[in-house]
Write a protein that binds this DNA or RNA. Sequence first.
RNA 1: GGAGGCAUAGCUCAGUUGGUUAGAGCGCUCGCUUCACAUGCGAGAGGUCGUAGGUUCGAGUCCUACUGUCUCUACCA
Length: 906
Amino acid sequence: MKSNYAVMKAELCLERQGFFVGRKQLETVKKYTEKYMLEKTYNPTTFEHDLYYFWMKQGYFTPKAEIGKPYFSIVSPPPNITGQLHIGHGLDNAIMDTIVRFKRMQGFNTLWLPGTDHASIATEVKIVEQLKKEGIDKRDLGREKFLERAWQWKEQYGGRIVEQLKKLGSSCDWSRLSFTMDEKCSEAVRKQFVSMYKKGLIYRGNRIINWCPVCKTALSDAEVEYSEQDGYFWHYGYTTSDGKTTVTFATTRPETMLGDTAVAVNPNDPRYTHLVGKTVIVPFVNREIPVIADEYVDMEFGTGVVKITPAHDPNDFEVGVRHNLPVIRVMNDDGTMNENAGEFAGLDRYEARKRIVARLKEMGILQKVEPHKHNVGSCYRCHTTVEPIVSKQWFVKMQPLAEPAIKAVRDGEITFHPERFAKTYFNWMENIKDWCISRQLWWGHRIPVWYCEDCGAEICEETDPTVCPKCGSEHIHQDEDVLDTWFSSALWPFSTLGYYRGSDDFKAFFPTSVLSCGYDIIFFWVARMIFSSLYATGQVPFRHVLMHGIVRDEQGRKMSKSLGNGVDPVEFIDKYGTDTLRFALINGVANGSDIRFAPDKIDGTRNFMNKVWNASRFVLMNAEGKALVPLDECKLTLADKWILTKLNDAVQTVTELLEKYELGMASQTLYDFVWSEFCDWYIEFTKPVLYGTDEIARRDTLSVLCYVLDEILKLLHPFAPCITEEIYQSTPNHGESIMIARFPEYDQAHCFADDCNLVEELKELVTKIRNIRSEYGVAPSKRIRLYVAATDERIRQCDVYLTKLCNLEEVVFESAPAGDKTVKAVGTAATCEVPLGDLVDKDKEIERLTKELENVNGEITRAESKLSNPGFLAKAPAQLVENEKAKLTKYRDLKAQLESRLGELK
RNA sequence: GGAGGCAUAGCUCAGUUGGUUAGAGCGCUCGCUUCACAUGCGAGAGGUCGUAGGUUCGAGUCCUACUGUCUCUACCA
């Protein structure tokens, strides 16, 4: 059958050879498509790219917005435009594509919406670096020119990452590609901000925020990373104004003393009660400050005295508010000391620290220096130590937003996979502080607030004002700051679907079905999407959250640039293909756990793909040019019934697992089914028929082979899209594309439990006979005779299988002649005798059978003790008891056989 | 300080409402150019499921404590 894919492939092939494809080439194309067959070796690079082109061209990725139709939708976590594809994206996309392809094949109207993130601070840092190399300072360039550069950057790098994502084979709808700063998303940001502002959920205020002196911007709490560092405790004190005593404390940041406005003790601390209300003098700045009493001070810790710097410490700030203390900032935005620092003004914060310590020592004030490990916060972008600084910033009031967000998860409107991440979520949401959303940057959504220079009014509307609505003044200016990049990401599920424009996409695909991302961005992103969506749309943004872990290297280390242990997905795909990458990342991995991406695993996966390829070649080579019939017209063999039953089991298991988003187990099920059942056994079972002379039997077996292969390809397609499509296009009677084929469904007509059991018994016998051959060193090429005493008469149907799989010259269904020296294989369905003549070693045989008997005895003991337990009989499910009884019977039979054989030998 | 994860074969890890003789890959041993595949085939060795209790007819799985280990979170100056 000529397919669109084959035609396209032929066209591409001709084009590459420099041909123009027109009517004249039709004959050539025809010739090519008729002969189109699988290449001899699996070489993914020869077809993956073409396949993707084909899918795109066919428009399979682009659903129509059909309101009311059963849908399945995912919005991609938008990668930053700063970056390039890394293995984490590979994992993310592998997971999403697997789910999306599965749902699409199940018939859902499926949308996977991709996009990129402007990544305000991250991108700005990069551009500033780039400018620096050119000797340009951001300030000199000016805001407007800088933004031009930024948009250029976006075009260049945003485009690059999209191209790289396509290499993964992701079936996302590129026609709906979004960007956090495109018109649609910016509009959503504006409307959301204005709405929240008007409801009082966004406010401006003086608070302690985390300040990055290099990026020169405020950061949210989530953007600060803490790490333990070696520091010191400097012990010294301030003398009371009357000069009588000195109150001693310890500090890790002596430079902040210049901004001290009090010294605090615990009100219940008898050591200091007499000092409360007195004043002390801060050296260098000679400021007289009070000794105050506040519960915040821990009497047990240090000396029980704390110096209070409201402008540079969050706790001190709170204390300052309670006691109405002055707030004195001693640092500039770049981390140098300001004019309030007296003689230290102008020095870098660390230089000032050094000098202050030296001066304290000189003055004899410093009493003790102690090494001290403490946690220091640093900027998540540039890793500079952040400085807590009091500053006027914009905040989102979190309490009213957190409550419904907690409720939605508690009520099960959103489910986390695995569940434990809900706890992490609650933990954070329940202790959340207001979110600082203003950034002193240029690249991003500018805060839509204008200030009137004449009347001081604050103007926040959906459209830009030209005059002050209060006093009519034209002297208004917009806030200089931009929004935290996560503010726009938080709207992503509904901004991209056009919620604020009332678009059909939103009506057809919202709430989205699943969100898939790494657990490292629960706080940054997942939590914020939930409360933002509940606020804006009144609905949850997604029903399920599927969390995955971090991809690590062979030794379990995080992949990082500095370690140079990262795997470049693009290079990897060029070498192994995307199917191997994806499968290796998913197969056998439990949700939410980190993944070790080791060479072993890669080889194993590549080998599996190769296995699939070659098994398919086996089927297709044999089927080539042969007539096939539908299954219900076939006379099914025992092996056929067995594989169909096993396939049915696989279909059921895989579907159930995929529906629960257990991708790792689903793919493992397929891996085992394909390799250990289909390849290792079924293909071998078919060989006697395929190489036999019965034409009808051959036709029927081929029909089953092709059917099972087809089903396998479809089951495997979500996990390994390319190889499955490539093979599918070569199967007889295939459809247009496997992507749009129906996902296999459980089929009651293909359930043959009894035959299936018989084959399992056959397999058991085969293994035992092979074991004997191996143990006795019978050359694999040597054909031997086998005597079979059947305990299950049906085993007589299996002579061809036994002959083939054990390499026999003959199967005789009777006991071996009395004089023959044989070795016995005792199985459930039969006892087989392998005549080995002088090879038979009596002692070895006794040893072998005794060991087997011990095993069987162990089983009998176990089963008997279970069955003699009244509690088990009374409470265990009936089926389980029945199974146990059947087993006991079986093992008793085996025991009898083994004992009789041992008796003969002795 | 708070929360959570993990501990199963030599290594890396599966094991979802408790229920066959606890699995896989790699590694290891032995044997095979068997006409889809040596990126392969066949056979095999290897685990008292971290420790101690408890619940149960039944525990790798549930509960408690402990030990070791990792992560997140808080930020006691």
